[in-house]
Design a protein around this nucleic acid. Structure first.
Lengths: 216, 216
DNA sequence: TGAATAGTGTCTGTTAGACAATATAGA
DNA sequence: TCTATATTGTCTAACAGACACTATTCA
């Protein structure tokens, strides 16, 4: 194998909720190109044939390591999104980036310096826009998240471990960008067995207390 | 970038129908490792910073080139599946393979020497099994194909351009591995606007002739 | 008591599948 | 006419959304 090889890296779209809005984590770049600009956190794959204990087990391990090293974060959900490639996406030359998206629970948030949560619906009007093809990556991640939200319990990873059905519905609505009928939503959560009732309630509000649930 | 880099390659799961059965294309390996064994067709990404006209525009272009060069085939549909990675999947060392799956129309078939179409439901009992992690790749491709089949017109790419609704239903059933209710199937194709009636019929059978359709 | 949200029940239009009746070619 | 498949129509059970009624806490 003496041919030229692409640069292999990982980019992560980390979603979370901030005051009920769907946000992605952006990080200020500390190296060229685009030094100082906000971009998706990412990094190179680590390989070390001399000492395999120092290398990434797989590209997903790279993604997990990037989140841990650069942001001290451990996401409860991470999934491969798509692999972006070509000469033009990175000024350093032909590159391949395996994009992942991850979900972080609302409130799990001790952001290191240089990182921000940006509302997804504000990205379009961001100026300057995200470098590389990161806009495209985020767009695909949002599309995937919405798609899976419509038939799965994925948004459960955006909430604390205990939550009410009202809170869960609010999260679904934030992700999908539309309101949902209450009765149908509750029926669906029950019937699909996505949640488990705890038998405790959340008091302190001037209304009937809500049952607490966990992901099933 | 003076670190070690993974070997980047592409593997393609090419689906087609042979006598109504869903098959994948396997190709006899002409190089080590696993020389002489049946495996998914694949190849390395071509990069050439000296002469960009010789290089692959993207990893998808690599997949298309592999099909063309090694098999003289041009698939009407190709889509990225997943990226597999790690040290152990290839004895040559840490590697990354972007897997694609493609659909070929039934009948478009002038197979080069060393290539075969293997029924998907025969793969489990293949001995020796496919090398590398190709079994896993095919399994994921079948899963993706079935998933998309249940809500899209993907199997249209497995048929000749003109077909009857009966033929189309047979293809859906071959892909999904289950029979479908006729009336519902026809309603769905019409309502989702997946097909267009041509106004011509297919004669020659001892029964009422069927209308011919095309993908809409 | 009133406000606010939680939780539940009913109704209705839509739809997927079951079933079967009719249509039309060749043998 | 008979056989085989095409095509269409009807019925029904299941379900999603609309709507609204009841429940329960704090102010």
């Amino acid at each position: 194998m003496d041919y030229e090889k692409p640069n292999d890296s990982v980019d992560v779209v980390m979603f979370t909720l901030v005051r009920g809005r769907l946000c992605v984590l952006l990080s200020i770049r500390t190296a060229e190109p685009y030094l100082g600009m906000l971009a998706l956190p990412g990094g190179y794959v680590h390989i070390n044939s001399a000492d395999p204990s120092l290398e990434d087990e797989s590209i997903e391990a790279t993604a997990v390591r990037v989140l841990r090293e650069k942001l001290s974060m451990d996401a409860p959900y991470i999934e491969q999104l798509y692999t972006f490639s070509g000469r033009k996406r990175d000024p350093r030359g032909w590159s391949m980036s395996v994009a992942y998206y991850a979900l972080l629970r609302e409130g799990d948030r001790s952001l290191p310096a240089g990182a921000v949560f940006m509302p997804v619906d504000a990205l379009d009007s961001m100026n300057p826009p995200l470098p590389f093809d990161h806009m495209e990556i985020v767009a695909m991640a949002v599309q995937r998240l919405r798609g899976k939200t419509s038939y799965s319990g994925l948004p459960l990873f955006l909430l604390p471990e205990e939550f009410t059905l009202g809170e869960l519905q609010t999260v679904y609505e934030a992700v999908l960008g539309e309101t949902l009928p209450k009765a149908s939503f509750r029926r669906r959560m029950e019937e699909q067995g996505l949640v488990r009732e705890l038998g405790r309630t959340r008091l302190g509000q001037a209304n009937r207390p809500a049952q607490l649930y966990r992901a099933a």
